[in-house]
Design a protein around this nucleic acid. Structure first.
Lengths: 159, 159
DNA sequence: ATAAGGCTTCCCATTATAGGAAGGTCAAGA
DNA sequence: TCTTGACCTTCCTATAATGGGAAGCCTTAT
């Protein structure tokens, strides 16, 4: 089957399929005499695997490892679990950060009249001197997570 | 003061200060005869504002608007609040997505022995045919949020 | 004067994805 | 058979915000 059909069957865009091949996440596809890529059920299966992993927020680098473990019939399940747990940690951390931001913003928004008057606690907070805007400390939480970016589309209602 | 001192005083790296200037978020800094950028308290104040806004997860584009409102003594607080509420919505959505991922992963991880044996519910899930990996539809919610270092995402996993 | 350290600009990398241009290929219809 | 349109190919660009580094000028203290 063509790349377009593989895309249709896997839910991964043709663009991404080529990209995954270019970075070695997918093995080089077979080619027809005229250069068209050719895919089989195996490939579609792998693409679905990748897609599902992306939907769960795994970075392509982790997916690369997961694919290796998937292929390896002798893998210790501990290796897989470790990757999952690490990812759960990252998610937990990121969630905490976002919640902290939201909490602060909600307080500020509640305090803001939101009318025609110029007084604004939100701006006051941002402009406030003393948020520890000083020193360029760098002990960030730097979660390197990536997690999808576009409209992957799918996701039917859970019933 | 030099860019290094402004950086120290604001908590924004020199690299970023130059970048903010290059994209017009900060006005062009004054220069010494030899080309060094010169900053005053005003500038440091603005840099702190930007930094605080970044810490709350605002995208530079929103910050651009917020700076404009900050400068405008006549702004209606409603304009500021609207931006904050929009951001809260984005955060809420992102949080929900990440929580959904985490929930799914936690279930899978709990079911995985995590020992030397190869059986792994996590891989089974990823490999499972039928996660609706089919059709590459395109309906998007495309949250353009930036938030420090991750990306947007999709698909609420059914568990 | 010389070295150290700060500054400047410019280029590259990151992450996953999308968009588009230029041009080749294939299948179906006129 | 020729044309057309849909599909394929590669290559380049952009995104958001940030970091890294090179090459070279400037300053300041020794």
């Amino acid at each position: 089957m063509n790349i377009g059909q593989a895309s249709e069957a896997s839910g991964v865009t043709a663009k991404m399929i080529r990209y995954y091949e270019s970075i070695g996440l997918m093995p080089p596809a077979g080619r027809t005499g005229s250069g068209y890529r050719v895919y089989g059920e195996q490939d579609v299966h792998m693409l679905r695997f990748i897609r599902r992993a992306r939907d769960l927020g795994f970075a392509l680098d982790d997916i690369r490892t997961l694919l290796g473990l998937w292929r390896d019939r002798e893998r210790p399940s501990a290796a897989v679990k470790a990757i999952a747990l690490k990812h759960i940690d990252e998610l937990t951390q990121k969630i905490a950060e976002l919640q902290a931001m939201r909490r602060t913003l909600q307080h500020l928004a509640e305090a803001c009249h939101g009318d025609g008057r110029p007084d604004c606690p939100i701006l006051d907070d941002l402009a406030e001197t003393g948020h520890d805007g000083a020193r360029p400390a760098k002990a960030q939480t730097s979660t390197k997570m990536q997690i999808k970016k576009n409209g992957g589309d799918r996701s039917p209602p859970c019933h």
